[in-house]
């Protein structure tokens, strides 16, 4: 029957378009065509997401610390439930106050390091487990690709695409994200790789170049300077070592790092648009000269 046949042809056309898009997007979606399309879509969909986020944002913030059973056991879970119950009693004004607190902390962290930041809020989250978020600041605000994104606690990720009104941030918890770090006391160099966000345990994987480095839980990490401060400016607190996964004979010392920033409940973030005049080294770590 013609109707069904035509539908099949339409399906074939749709699949062809999809395959062509996949073929043209190149490694990691880096082709200029896809970037252009995404930029165009970002200016349209970004505005819609901004509008929608004004509605859904408070709802998401309400559930910010997670639903019962999402994490934790025993006493911690009970406490979490209590927190949720208490949060339920918060009014919208209180939520705005929480926003304000986040903003103050971002600015405080940035001020401690001497960075210039553009403050933005997260308006959309990646689909299908993608560790990406959209923030409501774009090229009009001075945000460019490959800039560092922080929140009030530490490193969040890097900007990978920017449209006039919005930009996309690749979180450090993404498996494709690699950030150079330095260990706090000794300054050993290493790098952290994401493990997929909450589904991956929320931890980052740390590898230190010196195989003989004695890693211990509780050691703190800051970002190491990237070339020309892109994508990561130096000195941002990354996290703290949660467990050491040393393997004898390995080329690198390995550990798991719990990031300072709560990457599953991002709200107010800052994009570092101006690097510090000098490397703050470990000055921004909590408990080291900065008021937490």
């Amino acid at each position: 029957m013609r109707h069904a046949r035509r539908s099949r042809h339409l399906l074939g056309a749709a699949i062809a378009v999809a395959l062509a898009l996949i073929a043209m997007s190149g490694p990691g979606g880096s082709s200029p065509l896809v970037r252009m399309l995404r930029e165009a879509a970002g200016s349209v969909a970004g505005g819609a997401e901004r509008l929608a986020a004004t509605v859904t944002g408070p709802i998401g913030r309400f559930f910010g610390p997670g639903l019962p059973g999402a994490a934790g056991h025993g006493a911690a879970a009970a406490l979490e439930r209590q927190v949720i119950r208490l949060r339920a009693q918060l009014s919208a004004a209180e939520l705005t106050r929480a926003e304000y607190l986040g903003l103050r902390r971002v600015l405080g962290l940035a001020g401690a390091g001497g960075y210039r930041v553009v403050v933005a809020s997260v308006i959309a989250f990646g689909q299908g487990g993608q560790q990406t978020v959209t923030i409501d600041a774009g090229t009009a605000d001075g945000v460019r690709a490959q800039q560092t994104v922080i929140d009030g606690n530490g490193l969040v990720g890097q900007v990978i695409a920017a449209s006039p009104g919005t930009s996309t941030v690749l979180l450090v918890s993404a498996p494709g994200s690699v950030a150079g770090v330095r260990l706090a006391p000794g300054g050993q160099l290493g790098w952290v790789t994401g493990q997929g966000g909450a589904a991956g345990g929320g931890l980052l994987s740390l590898q230190v170049l010196d195989p003989s480095a004695a890693l211990a839980p509780g050691e703190q990490l800051v970002t190491a300077a990237s070339l020309r401060d892109r994508p990561f400016v130096p000195g941002i607190p990354v996290g703290v070592i949660a467990a050491v996964r040393g393997r004898a004979g390995a080329l690198t010392a390995r550990a798991l790092v719990r990031p300072y920033a709560d990457l599953g409940a991002l709200d107010i973030v800052g994009v570092v648009t101006g690097p510090p005049p000098r490397d703050p080294r470990f000055a921004m770590l909590p408990g080291r000269g900065r008021r937490g």
Binding site: L11, A18, I22, G29, G126, T132, T134, A161, T168
Partner: peptide, 24 residues
């Protein structure tokens, strides 16, 4: 839309493929 709207990263077209097939 999912492939191109802002939080998308990586290769475009995967959601187009999957959702077209699912809808059909």
């Amino acid at each position: 839309a999912l492939d191109l709207a802002p939080p998308a990263s990586g290769p475009a077209g995967q959601w187009t493929l999957v959702l077209s097939l699912a809808g059909y």
